[in-house]
Simulated scan of single mutants.
Amino acid sequence: MILFFGTRPGKTEIKKLPGVSCPHCDQKDTLTASISSNFFHVFWIKLFKISKHVIVECSYCKRAYYKEEFTEEMERVLESDL
């Protein structure tokens, strides 16, 4: 019997962060979060989530923020949406 298993990325979600200002350029309502997840699968059927990566980018100054660089305000808005 052949068993196909492994990991694959899921669809990337794009969410705006309303009311949050960019720490670099101080522009408000310009931050967008990209949320991507990796799943474990068997026979191409997703079974459970392995990891989740969140990157926030400012559309004004193009500065990207990783999880370690999030402000409390960013984390609060992201947690309320998820």
Results as ranks from 00 to 15, higher is better:
L47M: 05
M74F: 04
D26V: 05
F39S: 03
I55Y: 05
K28C: 11
E13C: 03
E68M: 07
F48R: 04
K62Q: 08
G19Y: 03
T32P: 15
F39L: 09
L31N: 00
P23K: 01
F40E: 01
V20N: 05
A33Q: 00
R76V: 06
C61A: 05
R63T: 12
E73W: 06
I2V: 15
F70K: 00
I55P: 04
F5P: 07
Y65Q: 07
L47W: 11
S37Q: 10
A33D: 00
P9H: 12
Y60Q: 13
M74Y: 00
I35P: 06
I45V: 15
S80Y: 06
F70E: 03
F5G: 14
C58Q: 07
F70N: 02
R8T: 13
F4V: 14
P18G: 03
G19Q: 05
L82A: 14
K16G: 03
F39G: 04
F48M: 01
C25Q: 09
E72Q: 13
E72T: 03
S51V: 02
E73L: 08
E68D: 05
C58E: 06
R8K: 15
P23Y: 10
T7N: 12
F70Y: 04
S59G: 14
C61M: 02
D29C: 11
A33I: 00
D26A: 10
D29Q: 06
S51I: 12
D29K: 11
F39R: 05
L82W: 10
V77T: 09
T32D: 14
L82V: 05
K49D: 01
C61D: 08
P9A: 07
K15L: 04
E73S: 05
K28M: 13
K49V: 08
P18D: 04
F70Q: 00
K15A: 02
V42Q: 02
S21G: 10
A64K: 15
P18H: 02
C58R: 03
K11R: 15
D81S: 15
F5L: 15
V56S: 01
N38A: 15
S34R: 04
C61K: 12
E72D: 11
K67I: 08
D26T: 09
K62R: 06
S36F: 04
Y65E: 04
Y66C: 09
Y60W: 14
F70T: 01
I2A: 13
S36G: 00
I14V: 13
E79H: 07
